[in-house]
Amino acid sequence: MIIAFFGTGDTLADFSNEALRYMSIVAGFALLLGVISITQVSAGVVRKREKDWPYKIVLLLCLFTMAGFGIFQGITSGTVFEWLFENIQKPMMATMFSVLAFFIASAAYRAFRARTVEATILLITAIVVMLGRVPMGQYVYEDFPAVANWIMMFPSVAVQRGIIIGAALGAASMSLRIILGIERTYMGRG
């Protein structure tokens, strides 16, 4: 990959692209590992009649139905696979994350306290940004949107940039350690 980045020529590009193509396919198989794992665990619970085993039957039924239609009928528009996704899976997934709105508001009420100078800075910034980013904020104080924008574009960007640079340096050095064979824990070795 690194040589292909610096080098030129069709052979090098072709070789690099074949590697990427292979990688995409292998990554696909890796995703199936999770499917096999959840099937194994759920089947085990049903076999041993452990707690909530009837729900695991529901899980397995849904899994095989969805996978069956996907494999034998297809996954495009107009299939049962698409219908199950649009009408059952999608609304549930969207709802599960929306529940967090209730929890985050409750947490703001109970835990967001100006106990120290740092906590106070955090709290004030949060309030300014929350009000500055909604239309009603300008009616509370007309400069809220401008102040919120300034916070986002300067102090916040500075910190995000510091974190991006720090994390990227860490990731690049880890990649180098892997390439040079220093880091081998992913192989199960120290």
């Binding site: 499917v35 099937t39 529901v58 849904c62 899994l63 996907g70 996704f85």
Partner: peptide, 12 residues
Amino acid sequence: VFAGLSAGYYAG
């Protein structure tokens, strides 16, 4: 139902 459909979605 959600967990089952999600795993099935990936398989398909």
